[in-house]
Each structure stands twice: as C-alpha cells, then as structure tokens.
Write a protein that binds this DNA or RNA. Sequence first.
DNA 1: TAGGTGTACATTGTCGACAATCCTGCCTGT
DNA 2: ACAGGCAGGATTGTCGACAATGTACACCTA
Lengths: 227, 227
Amino acid sequence: MHLAHPALRQPVTAADRVLQEIQRAIVEGDIAAGSKISEPELARRFDLSRAPLREALARLERCHLIERIPNAGARVVTLSTAGLLALYQLRENLEGLACKLAAEHMTDAEITEVRLLLDQHLSSQRVREGESYYQEAGDLDFHYRVILGSKNSYLINILCDELYYLVRMYRVQLGMNGPRVSRAFDEHKAIINAIANRDGELADLLMRRHIAASRRNIELQLQQMGS
Amino acid sequence: MHLAHPALRQPVTAADRVLQEIQRAIVEGDIAAGSKISEPELARRFDLSRAPLREALARLERCHLIERIPNAGARVVTLSTAGLLALYQLRENLEGLACKLAAEHMTDAEITEVRLLLDQHLSSQRVREGESYYQEAGDLDFHYRVILGSKNSYLINILCDELYYLVRMYRVQLGMNGPRVSRAFDEHKAIINAIANRDGELADLLMRRHIAASRRNIELQLQQMGS
DNA sequence: TAGGTGTACATTGTCGACAATCCTGCCTGT
DNA sequence: ACAGGCAGGATTGTCGACAATGTACACCTA
C-alpha cells in the first residue's frame, strides 16, 4: 500500500507523456468536449505510433475523460448538469470520508504544512487580487493534501487519479473565478482546524458543506450558460 | 450517462476474453497473490499476442488486481489486513451512499425484482443447506442491484468495475462460508425494506452496518489464518 | 420515392519484430 | 573478502503492417 501515486510521478514512457498532453488538451477544451477521437490523427499529431497512444487512451477512459466503444472508437465526454451532479454527489461523500480519516491519520507535521500552504494562498491572493491562481491550483492543492492525509490508497486513487481531472474539466471549461474565493479560503481554514483538533466528524461535515457550496456555484454558472 | 456497464457486457474482443479469464484466475487464486506477471508467458498460455494482453493488464490494474511499475513489470496484489480495512472503509461509505440514492431513484418495479431475488436466495439456501451459492453470487448480486439502483454512473463504475473483483478476491481466497449467512439475509431484507419506504437515511445506516459486520467476519478469518 | 442491400472505405483490433530498459551474475580491483 | 562495474540475458516499450469490424454511400428493387 504505497501512497505515492501516478499523478505526482513524472512521465518516463512515451505513453505517459502523450497522456499528460491529451489530458491537458481535454481539460482545457483544446480538444472539444463531445468530439470524436481518431487514433491515426492523434498518432500523427503527437508523432508516435498507435501502441502508446492506445495505452494513453485506456488511461483517459479510466479518469472518465473519454468513453470508448469496442470497434467503434472513443469520444470525449460531454459536460452536463446530470453528470456534474453525479460527480459532486460522490465527491461530497468521498472527500468527507477523506477528512474523517485525515483527522485520524495525519501527522502534526503534515497539518502544519497544510496550514503553511493556506497562508501562502492567502498572501498570494491578497497581493495579486486575481483569484485564478488560488482557484486553479490552490484549492485543488488543499483538497489534494487532505486526501493524501487519509492514508487510504484506494480513496486516494479514486479522488486523485480518476475524478481529479474531470473535476478540473468542469471548473476550467465553465471558467470558475467568481466571488467564492475568500469564502472558500475560510472554509479550508475551518476544515484544517477540525482535523488538527482530531474532530473527524466535524471535518467531514465541513468538507461536505464546502463541496456542496462549490457545486451550487458551478450549477449556477451552467444555468447561466444554458440560458 | 449510460448505466449499462462493461461488467455485464459479454466479451467481444480478444482482450475482453483474456481479461475475464485472468480476472477469474487471480480472484480464485489460480494465479497466486503476490506472484510476478510475465507478459510473454501469459501470451503463450492464452495463445494470443502481447497487444491484447497488455490491454487486459491495463484493465486489471484498474480494478486493483495487479500493480504495474514502468519498465519493471506487474505483480498480482497481495492480501493484507491493512488493505482489507482500507477497502471496506470505502465500501461502507460508497454502498451507504448507493443505498441513500437507491431510496430516491429506484423504481417500484426494480424494488419488487430485488425482493423476488431475495426470496429465491432464501429457498435455494434452505434447499441446499450449503451457503456457498448464496455467499458467492447471491450476496454480491443483491449489492449489485442496489448499486445499480443509485443511478449514479460514477458510483456504479467504482463499485461494480473497480472494487468488485477485489472484494470477491478477499472473500474467495479467505473462504467465506461461515454462519453469517442467515443474518446477512435478514440484513438484506431490512435494507430493501428501508429503500422501499424511501427512507434513505435508514438504508444508508443499515448498509454500513451490514458491511461493517461482513468486514469483522473477514478480519476474524484473516486473524485465524495468520496465527 | 422509400427501403433494403451490397460494396468500398475508414477505423479499430491484432500480430510479429525491433529498440530501450532493467535485472542477474560474474569479474575485477583494491 | 567485499564493493563496484561490466557484460549477458530477459523483459518491457514501441513500431509498422495486416486482419476484422463498423460505417457510409451508392445502387437496386418494390
């Protein structure tokens, strides 16, 4: 039960490299949502054979960025309100559990580190007055730390490898940068406090609320775009 | 968001077939836990080239039956108390959530069908006095139905595709056939009743308890084997 | 004209061989 | 004797070509 997971590992094989490139391209909408994936075309575009490309596609399917049908090809997933709801239902539960476990298993040193991280976010947020950094890397980074703190390898795998990129895709493509930034920061602070107090139940509750609020925020955005 | 998932789909490609064969072999201990996987050997054994085999290995990694290290090969996972605990921690939470959602989303027809299924289990159990069928296919089948009833595709995917075989592996290799059978049946009955009453909170609670009891049962078995 | 059928094309699945990497055991030097 | 390095063998990663399957368009028939 090793805790270092693939996402942090730097690419060693050609399939790893092309996977990261395609992941980024899909998450940022460079490859349009819902569009068909052509193996020969991508192989030419990234200048490698179909073997490593197919390996990459298999992993893309694993993190729900594409859907494959045997003998018929692959399509990039489409964003939908139903999908968002299903995704966040899961996140609420899983990250709640992660908080509960983190309250049991995180070391004091790890907790201190996360607090330092939050302070960095705060200053960088104030200095730049732009929320994008915080929302982009920071928020996810905080969640990342807490998830790792759960020390449950299956949970870590699901949240950091399989759902992570899909969550990012929704946030990036819907352009999340609203006024929720400072509130999110306070919520993070409250969560790490609960973990530090070894109050798993409270940490669980706070994280669920935090994610529910985030979901409502994105739902609103989706609604505005739809109308 | 389609709800029919790969596990139910019959194999259409060579990779599908060999995947199912290796899955069964690992789950039933035919390929020993912890043993190294040799691609050339397996390719000869199943009489196909390495391309579809590697596809199958990728999916085996996805359901946590093997662990791969780049340029170094793959090993079958080893069973451990820590792994079992982590796995069941997750199951308690996820299947609890599945119950809650099933209470909201299952149709009356689906509920009736599950009840019929339970009655079948009961009679077949009484007739044969052997618990293996029930424990093997039946119990998992009940869980299967409830999970599908949640109508959350991500949740279904995680429980039915990624964790299902690992759970089976623990149960099969530790030879689960204790006196828990009739109690498990009653618990199933109580759960489906709660779902029928649309009491998601109770269904959640009952399922968590049900799985916790199952976990303690297996832990006991593991302890006895260890000593 | 609408529906079904057949053929040609494109795409995916599979194969066997080559290249790159890692592990093993032996050899050498201190 | 032991540590380090060096070759040999084996394994994994990648490639280009072939086979099987699915798709689309034209054609024929009713």
